[in-house]
Design a protein around this nucleic acid. Structure first.
Lengths: 223, 223
DNA sequence: GTCTATAGTCGGATAGAC
DNA sequence: GTCTATCCGACTATAGAC
């Protein structure tokens, strides 16, 4: 984000509380978080992070939500940031699975685009969670390559699917000759707006907005 | 935001650190924050809140940024939350001033709508700040009536201007007969998407996106 | 109005028993 | 794998001198 005032960028402050790496432990995660407990922690953490935000949720909150002792969190994850990273990656993976299921069988270009919007309606909560934690992560000033990649992967995937569908529709003579990349970006940006606005204004009707988008888009595309 | 998991909503936790109202002070703000120093604090606070977020910014950060002692913050504001409230209200007020200046002299309906987009391009940074702190506030789970009102006022103002312009254009025969409310919501939602996406993806070209929106909108409206 | 100093509290992370 | 107990640091807010 552009900074307009001549303040020096704040370097990432170390987390509050006892500094990590103080003790003698070798600092390796003992268990891969794929078992029952690790997954339970990830699910609870995601919901807590989404309900408020990364900085407001404490390790003790996650312990309470899972019925686990706080020390258990550190048995499965290196630290709070590592837990957040795993949470983001898991959310993206979930969203992907839904998307792939949707776009798996070959469909007409119009069905792909409309199906994409349907996915956003059906998976509204999941995608809003993804956007929410992406926004939180963006304001953390602490880049983590794996998280950057997970977020980019989501948007790249979206762009790829939409662009291909639009180009295909044009090639087959169903769609008007539009700039496919631009149109895909337009759809994607609007969908982000739906997610953002439904966070800020609880009365906002996200489904209605998506359906209105569908009308505009198809009106533009269909010959 | 809808909660899908059966966890009880976390009640707002009291702020960390020493509890407010512990001491004997009468707890009234001594000075109205309109003087030089109060304004300086507000400006610095806004920029810091936007650069990262409410929970990561400390009173000491604001002290450093202003060159003031931390105790001075509490001389001008009741507590951190009160400072945040004043910051939001100030940002909204700023944005309003810009908008009013723009929409002051009578113009054609097309000019009003296009001018609105121009305002978003020219005041991109200011409006993004507003959206950013609105999003942060939305995830605070701690409603403050004055902040709710300030945020709603912004969106209501936007809706009013756009709807009126579209209706006027229709009445005067320049625009197609569209649902004015729906179209205004569409524009407004897309603009939110532009702001959100430019936070998440630094490479995103917000100005280009707004100009593309202009093309779509005028294409829809103009006969 | 501005500062120094510090109280009171909370949260992240660890050690080590079982 | 799970828990108890606790350390250490960071934070908000205050008291009170000047």
């Amino acid at each position: 984000m552009a900074r307009t005032v001549g303040q020096s960028a704040a370097p990432p402050r170390p987390a509050r509380g006892r500094p990590a790496g103080t003790g003698a432990a070798a600092k390796k995660r003992v268990a891969a978080p794929n078992g029952e407990t690790g997954t339970k922690i990830l699910d609870a953490a995601l919901n807590l992070f989404v309900q408020s935000n990364y900085w407001s949720v404490t390790i003790k909150d996650i312990g309470r939500a899972t019925g686990l002792n706080t020390a258990m969190i550190y048995y499965y994850f290196q630290d709070k940031e590592d837990l957040f990273r795993a949470t983001v990656e898991r959310a993206v993976k979930h969203a992907f699975v839904e998307f792939e299921t949707r776009t798996n069988n070959t469909q007409s270009a119009e069905e792909v685009i409309s199906g994409w919007l349907d996915t956003h309606i059906e998976q509204l909560d999941l995608i809003r969670k993804f956007v929410k934690i992406s926004l939180d992560y963006a304001s953390s000033n602490n880049r983590i390559i794996r998280i950057d990649k997970a977020i980019s992967a989501f948007y790249d995937h979206e762009r790829t699917i939409l662009t291909a569908a639009i180009k295909s529709g044009i090639a087959q003579g169903y769609f008007r000759l539009v700039d496919a990349e631009q149109m895909a970006r337009f759809i994607s940006t609007f969908l982000d707006g739906v997610m953002a606005r439904s966070m800020v204004l609880p009365k906002f009707d996200a489904i209605e907005a998506i359906n209105e988008l569908r009308g505009y888009i198809l009106g533009q595309l269909l010959i």
